[in-house]
Amino acid sequence: MPRMLDVSDAVRAEIGDEEADRLLAGENAPGSYDCTSCRTPGDSEQERTSTVLFIGDETAVLAFAHASCLPSQVVQVTEEQLRGAVRSISGDSVGGGAFAGEPQRAVPEQAVLGVTSGLVLITGELHPALVVEPTAPIVRPGTTGVGDDFLPLLIEQGFMPLVELTAVPPVLHGWSVLLAVGQLHAVLQPGPNGGQPVAWWQAHQPLQVTDGWRAAANKHQQVLMFAAPVGSIGRQPREDLLRDALDRAAALGRLVAATLPLAGT
């Protein structure tokens, strides 16, 4: 039976027309599946389903997601991350879908990128913001010494150092924030060699945002992203305390930021 599958041009280019046509005809596509984004059941015979191709250094895995959760796309990941995805998809591990591009590939295994959403007041207007802070220092790929290269790596990607929050940071083209069905799914960065965007950070499960945050994101069609090294911001229970922590980090030269276009609604 034909499946209600979405196969993007990028996925088709990777798997070939013959395989894509077999998927659409229902020959190689499962009827039921666990969504690679929200991890809840889906049925490609009953609802629109996206094909998501995860490509590692040597292998690739084709997964499926509710079209309302993720668009059909190609996601570049490391081989280690891909093995973790296979374990997650096959049910050998809990959760799944935490894939990232540079600079998160430099994160030691114990480091996790913490992401907090909140509204930030700049020049009298509220803007939706994401604050990213790792749980451990991040070193540059290929190095073995101690230190924290999180901010230099982001600056090389185009993020701007801040000393105070008095203006909206410049737009970083090629990067975006993926919001689907009112939930936060991923921060995307440009793909290698100008290819399809890849996930720099992706939630294990879609993150809930407040109605006010979502309304501001839809109004501005962009999200401010702030990043700081471990220990700079912390988990703040209120938005006013989060803003105070951002101001302190900026004054200490421990904050970078960019404005990212909004992908999704």
Results as ranks from 00 to 15, higher is better:
G101R: 03
G101W: 04
E102Y: 05
E102W: 00
E102F: 10
P103E: 10
P103R: 01
Q104G: 06
A106C: 10
V107H: 11
V107R: 09
P108F: 04
P108D: 07
P108A: 06
P108G: 00
E109D: 12
E109K: 07
Q110A: 04
Q110V: 10
Q110E: 06
V112I: 14
L113C: 09
L113V: 05
G114L: 15
V115D: 00
V115E: 10
V115P: 10
T116R: 14
G118M: 09
G118C: 13
L119E: 15
L119S: 14
V120I: 15
V120C: 11
L121I: 11
I122N: 14
I122G: 07
I122S: 12
T123F: 02
G124R: 07
E125Y: 10
L126P: 09
L126Y: 13
L126C: 06
L126S: 12
L126V: 05
H127N: 14
H127E: 13
P128D: 13
P128K: 04
P128H: 12
A129N: 14
A129Y: 15
A129Q: 12
V131E: 06
V131C: 13
V132R: 09
V132W: 12
P134V: 00
T135N: 05
T135P: 03
T135C: 02
T135I: 01
A136T: 06
P137M: 01
I138M: 13
I138E: 06
I138A: 05
I138H: 07
R140S: 14
P141R: 04
T143Y: 05
T143H: 10
T144W: 00
G145R: 10
G147K: 01
D149L: 00
F150H: 04
F150I: 06
L151E: 08
P152V: 01
L153D: 04
L154T: 11
L154M: 11
L154H: 09
L154R: 05
I155H: 05
I155C: 10
E156W: 04
E156G: 14
E156T: 07
Q157L: 12
Q157E: 10
Q157G: 05
G158M: 07
G158T: 05
F159E: 00
F159V: 09
F159D: 07
M160T: 14
M160V: 15
M160W: 00
P161V: 08
P161Q: 08
L162H: 11
L162C: 14
L162W: 02
V163H: 11
V163M: 09
V163N: 12
E164G: 09
